[in-house]
Nucleic acid binder design. Structure first.
Lengths: 190, 190
DNA sequence: CACCCTGTATACCGATCGGTTTCCTCACAG
DNA sequence: CTGTGAGGAAACCGATCGGTATACAGGGTG
């Protein structure tokens, strides 16, 4: 889609994989995946050992981008409260976009019930990273129990992502940010 | 499994479906499903039009049980706050049980990205029912904004279910009930 | 030119998918 | 006893699954 034709087969494959796995689920076939990427199955199996590895690699590839997206741009001047708020404003924005299907990492963890799956490992790491970021900010902001607050924020993050992705909740009225504010206040975050 | 051999093929089928779809996901095959239920494919396709209908019916069948399970036993004397707290204590208990895979309705909604799927309709109804229950209790308890509180509680419910089901969170230390208490307090629930 | 090296296209593999059909057994009604 | 209908066992259907192998086209480099 956004992938140029001059990109390497590997990049085309991973970009197509990220999009298709996200939109259609992990049960999308190798045939359809390769067709969409403009890459032959031969090349795919030359670059990766299995479809599972492609899925894992596509998640891994998106991680830095996903991470950067949640990081407040005015990272230097912002307060911890602002940085946390920024994450959830992004969630509300993303959820409103057409084609939103929730957090891709959580979706993969739910779809692949197997926690040993290579893609599950990547997804779990992404989740832990965000939780670590929350905890860091909570600590910096003087929260009474930074670890607790971080876990609470993850509950909201994943609950909101899952429900918006399943289209049983609309986050366009500040539900998430208001809820987060309540938790931040209760935690004593400056 | 727990199903007796004297149960009707329909009941055996739906019980096996509920268990297998929950544990292994919706991509489980009809062959395995029928084998596990001790029912021939012939009978299955005589009772239902398609595998999708079996899935939907199995969710529908579990709904009254699921619902009753979340309803406080001392329904008459309990306060709204106690009734809401009861739901989340059940979540914490269930999540600790081996083989827990999260809320089956949310899992189905995530796995079947198609919101028009018959099973998605059933799952969505189950979710709306719980949310309605929350809203009812919130109103009865004098919450400032009952609809808002109900939606907040659903965020926690689904976030906790999904994360515990994906085994990236353990709810055995009261994380959920403590978070809920914070929200109930902020909402001014008596 | 020949020689690789990538990469595409495609046929193919055995297994499984959702779904249909045939056959046969067994319980019960007359 | 015979008839009848329910239901299990299993063959079978075309399609698709993940994965492999063969054949061929284009672009460097000697």
């Amino acid at each position: 889609m956004a992938t140029t034709d001059k990109a390497s087969p590997r990049d085309r494959l991973l970009d197509a994989a990220a999009e298709l796995f996200y939109r259609d689920g992990v049960s999308i076939g190798v045939e359809a995946l390769c067709r969409s990427a403009g890459v032959s199955k031969r090349s795919m199996y030359q670059l990766f050992d299995s479809k599972d590895e492609v899925l894992a690699a596509s998640l891994e590839r998106r991680r830095p981008w996903y991470e950067a997206q949640l990081r407040s741009p005015d990272s230097e001047t912002a307060t911890p409260r602002e940085r946390i708020g920024y994450v959830f404003r992004r969630v509300e924005e993303n959820a409103a976009a057409p084609g939103y299907c929730g957090c891709p990492y959580l979706a993969v963890l739910v779809e692949l019930k197997d926690g040993e799956h290579p893609a599950s490992v990547v997804a779990r790491a992404a989740k832990e990273l965000l939780q670590g970021y929350f905890e860091e900010q909570a600590e910096q902001g003087g929260a009474a129990d930074p670890a607790l607050l971080a876990r609470q924020l993850m509950l909201i993050f994943d609950g909101a992502s899952a429900r918006a992705g399943a289209h049983i909740e609309h986050l366009d009225d500040g539900l998430v940010t208001r809820t987060v504010t309540t938790l931040l206040d209760a935690a004593g975050l400056k």
